[in-house]
Design a protein around this nucleic acid. Sequence first.
DNA 1: GTGAAAGCGCTAACAG
DNA 2: CTGTTAGCGCTTTCAC
Lengths: 353, 353
Amino acid sequence: MEKSIHITLDDIAKRLNVSKVTVSKALRGHPDISKETTQLVKKVAEELGYTPNYMARNLSSRHSNTIGVVIPKIAHFFFSAVIESIYDAAFYNNYEIILTVSQESEDRQTKHIESLLAMRVDGLIISITQQTRDLSIFEKVKRQGIPLTFIDRILDIPNTSSVTVDDRGGAFQAIEHAIKLGYTKIGHLAGFHEINIGLKRYQGFEDAMKQYGVEINPDWVIHGSFGEEAGYRGFMQMYNNNNLPEFLFTVTYPVALGVYAAVQEVGLKIPDDIDIMCFGNSDVNRFISPSLSCVNQPTEMLGKKAVEVTLDHIRNIDSFVPKHIEIPTELLLRETCSAKGMILFSKAGLTGS
Amino acid sequence: MEKSIHITLDDIAKRLNVSKVTVSKALRGHPDISKETTQLVKKVAEELGYTPNYMARNLSSRHSNTIGVVIPKIAHFFFSAVIESIYDAAFYNNYEIILTVSQESEDRQTKHIESLLAMRVDGLIISITQQTRDLSIFEKVKRQGIPLTFIDRILDIPNTSSVTVDDRGGAFQAIEHAIKLGYTKIGHLAGFHEINIGLKRYQGFEDAMKQYGVEINPDWVIHGSFGEEAGYRGFMQMYNNNNLPEFLFTVTYPVALGVYAAVQEVGLKIPDDIDIMCFGNSDVNRFISPSLSCVNQPTEMLGKKAVEVTLDHIRNIDSFVPKHIEIPTELLLRETCSAKGMILFSKAGLTGS
DNA sequence: GTGAAAGCGCTAACAG
DNA sequence: CTGTTAGCGCTTTCAC
């Protein structure tokens, strides 16, 4: 029937003996067009199985109704939960998300941002890779006037927004809790300082130790990566030095899982021999044994806020003032690092609540 | 300097006193253009911070170098792992992925496919929602001539490809293993029959039971959903009826986790009181206690194959014959459902290997 | 209310 | 090797 496999505005227009423009307007519910015409157009479009061509639409309207997202990893509870909430928020706001995954590679990250720019996304939400050294791509984004919001793993770049959780405060809470439980030999499997979450969580740890006058033993503070291997290796290092703390705070939950594996391997028991708590929840924390207490990050909030801020920026491109949203965390207490554990396994002090 | 915030081919062309076309070709490395010109063009493009406009490029070239993906869930180990491999494969092949998430809602699924169609993706990879009743959207996809590949959760639609794991065979292996371990009171927390993975896994269960002459007790076969609640409720139902099997095979790992929670709640122990194995691995299966044996789905293969098949279809749009790839599974044995467990907890028979 | 004209930025086809 | 001519399908003025 038609030469092209795709129905165009023109096809509908000819069918109805009206102009392309009328159809275009009708389809978008433009007030210019009368009720009847609009309905008629919509009906025919439906019949013909019309699918708008966003490429054409976007080219001519000069915006894409699309937000680009770059995250370092997807098969990770935190990120997949955040992404899910980003998708939800975008869907709710009638925006499309184009998701890319950098796999912690700066090179990929750059390429993906380039692609997203080329796709003319209206805004960008980015959680940077563990090592992001070259900031020029972000300058490029800014030069092109694309609203940029960092999420969780942020960069301090002028005129960009950020949505983070209160990493420092959350870490503080965790350590404070451990101290109040009576622990004094406290270790921290930390991330890099180069990335905000690593630094902030370490600072929170330090804050609490100082405030409560507990000495920081450098042997028990090990900087590493954010994955399971880091936890495994970190624990093993202390174990092999025959110098284990009573309590370990890990920068992420995979690091904690690595510790679980290592502890089990050497035949020790959590929390008897070493107690533990981590930053970040996951769907498994409550199923592992003993169930793992953590500093919970409200992932839904994070994604939602990131989209809202970005949309705000897009919609008020000239007047927008960058926002820096910090979402409070909360302690999620389970079997590890609990007063109950303290009693059961007869450690120092407290009866707990 | 320029009126538009974006540099265009024309800007580069004028700078160099050549035509737009020359620039376009040079940038794409077209053999028409001489080495020197090409280099010069690329240099200037770089200097000017040129970012191609894919909307324009795609509109005029009539393809988008893009594959649309629709999956039901993202915060789930299986899907996030598959997605990661899809992204990898696409990246490797210089294709972009546009990912959408249906959240198990058929309505959303339809809307997303519409959007993807409107974005003029070159191909589509879809894993359908738990209940997909209306097939008209898939007809629309076919009518528009867009290559369609189903992944894992498939639909039997002519001229579409599929990539699945051997659900039936995998389930068979699991049950066979349990039987060989000496179990005879075997239950199955199954999914819906309406979706292929639910049906196939059930069939595998049935196959094995029949082949080994083990009777299927309907009280121990409970059909439900694929999430944790289903596992929790399924177990509780049997428990409350005072009729527990010795061994439970669950249709997914979240269902197994639900069982873990329920078992713990009623004060029983896995695998002493009830042994368990599930279909599908996750990053946590090895960290929960006891660690959970499972039928492993090679997720990397799945994503890779799906992309390859789709690309194949895109590139040979006229001659392509739909492919149906089934990827074998393997048993991943850990603490549950193992001969070791059998000895430790003194159940029937075997000494195991 | 409706439509004609112009153009978004790019590529394909052909001519030189 | 390079450039000219014509659109891709849509939206945006701005007339009528």
